[in-house]
Amino acid sequence: MNTFFVSLLPVLLGLVLAPLLLGVIHRTKAVFAGRHGSPLLQAYSDLAKLLRKGAVYSRTTTWVFRAAPVIGLASVVSVMVLLPITGNSAPLSFVGDLIVFIYVLGLMRFFTVVAALDTGSSFEGMGASREVHFSALAEPAIVVGLVALASATGFLSLSGIFSAMSPTTWVVAGPALALVLAALFIVFLAENSRIPIDDPNTHLELTMIHEVMILDYSGPDLALVLYAAALKLWVLGALIVNVALSPLGLNGIRGVGLFVAGMLVLAVIVGCVESMMARSSFLKVPRLLVTAIALSGIAFMLIVRFTA
C-alpha cells in the first residue's frame, strides 16, 4: 500500500505545481515586454481569492452549466493518474491507456462546450464552435502521434512507452520522434488555447476561444475551471517533456527533478512563442492543425519503416 502512495506522488506534484506554469509563462512574456510582471505565484492567489467568493449564475443556465466545471476538473485529475513522469511509471497503467487519456480529456471538452452553449450568449457560442472545430483536428494528430510512439517502442501504455524510450530509440528513429514532438507541441498549444491558436490575454470576446467559453463563470466555479485548465496544460505538457527527455535515460528521483525542470523550460518556451508570434487568423488555424496530423502521420510511417 505504501508503494501505491509513493506512486501517487507525481500526481500530487502536478496538482501542486500546475498553476506555477502559468506564472512562468506570464513572467517570460513580461520579461520580453520589458515589464516587471506579476508574481510567479499569482495564479495561486487568484484561485484562493475565487474560492473565497460567492457565485453569480446566469438566469438562462441550467444544471449543465454547474456540472461542467466539476466534471472537467474530475476528468483531468483522473487523467493525471495515467501520466508517467520521466523514468517513473504512473500509478495506473494498462494497455491502451493513451486512448483513455485522450478521450477523458474529450469528455472535459464536451462539457466545457455544452456549458458555454448553456448561457445562450452568441459570444460563448462562437468560442464553443471554434473549440470543437479545432479540437476535432487536434484529436487525430495526438492519437496518431501517440500510436507512432507506441509503434516505436512496442508498448501500448503511456508508462510503457515512456519507460521504453531510450537513447537507442532516438538513434533508430530520431527524425520521426522529432516530428512527433513537433506535432505534440502544436496540439499542446491548440488544446491549451495558447498563441498562435488562441490568445488567452485578449480583451475582445470576438477573438477568443477558451476564455470566451468560460465568460459567465464566477467564484468557486471559475476557480475550478481555471485550475482544470492549468492541470490540462500540465498533463499535455508532460507528454512533450517525457518525449523530449527520453534520450537522457534517467529514472527515479533524478528523473522527477529533471521532469519538473523540463516543465518549467516548456513554460518558458511557450512564453517565448507567445511573445514572438501573433495570433494566427482563425481561418489559418486548421492548416496548422492538419500540419500536426501530417507530421504525426509521416512520423508513424517512418517509424514503421525504421523498426521493420
Binding site: 449564475y57 470576446e205 459567465d216 468557486p220
Partner: peptide
Amino acid sequence: RSRLLSARSVTREPTWDC
C-alpha cells in the same frame, strides 16, 4: 462547492452580454 457556497451570496442575473 456546495459547502463553499452555502453561506455566501449566490445570485441569478442575465447572461453577460459583453
